[in-house]
């Protein structure tokens, strides 16, 4: 039985990678899991390649950073260069979720099981690109992460009090809907 989930969110600084990672970690913490969350620190978080890693486990987490993710969420093309060694391998075991409009996988180069979604555009419809990761969180919660959606919603609400929180929760719920027909 799986007891540890290692997820990396990768995109552009400003798409909310760090914030989404923190929310996921908070939700895991609420649910009683052990968790470790890390994120890009420096110029990357301000417009360049930005990442957040979240480990969720029912066991003690020895090493808090992620060497190889079980799940990789990619929201920009630049991320493919960074993760090429993992995604090009035939036996990596990493599942790829990507933004189908802005980050389609380079043809013939990805050997990971891959699933595309309208992430960024959905976030723009509801709020702004800054909420792209909230849509991604919805997809993750539906398909992958063993977290109760009410805990994720609560973590979002606590992070963004007021009206912004409600809009971010709507983005999250849209993500849940988008993933309804994708049994992983």
């Amino acid at each position: 039985m799986k007891n540890t989930w290692r997820t990396i969110l990768s995109g552009s600084g400003g798409q909310g990678m760090g914030m989404a990672g923190k929310i996921l970690a908070e939700a895991a913490f609420m649910q009683g899991f052990n968790t470790a969350q890390s994120q890009t620190y420096g110029a990357g978080a301000r417009g360049d390649l930005s990442q957040s890693g979240i480990i969720i486990s029912s066991e003690d987490i020895l090493f808090p950073l992620i060497e190889k993710p079980d799940l990789l969420v990619i929201l920009n093309n630049k991320s493919y260069g960074h993760f090429a060694p993992i995604l090009n391998s035939n036996c990596n075991g990493t599942i790829l979720i990507y933004d189908q409009d802005y980050a389609p996988p380079p043809k013939g180069k990805i050997n990971s099981p891959s699933f595309g979604f309208t992430v960024v555009n959905k976030a723009r419809e509801i709020l702004s690109e800054k909420a792209a990761c909230m849509v991604a969180l919805g997809i993750l919660t539906r398909l992958w992460i063993p977290l109760d959606k009410t805990n994720v919603s609560q973590a979002i609400q606590e992070t963004f009090p007021g009206k912004t929180g409600l809009q971010n929760i709507k983005c999250f719920e849209e993500g849940l809907k988008l993933a309804e027909n994708y049994p992983l």
């Binding site: 968790t35 470790a36 969350q37 890390s38 994120q39 620190y41 808090p64």
Partner: peptide
């Protein structure tokens, strides 16, 4: 260190 300073844990 810079890594430990920014990682979030319980």
């Amino acid at each position: 260190d810079a890594a430990l300073a920014h990682v979030r844990e319980k």
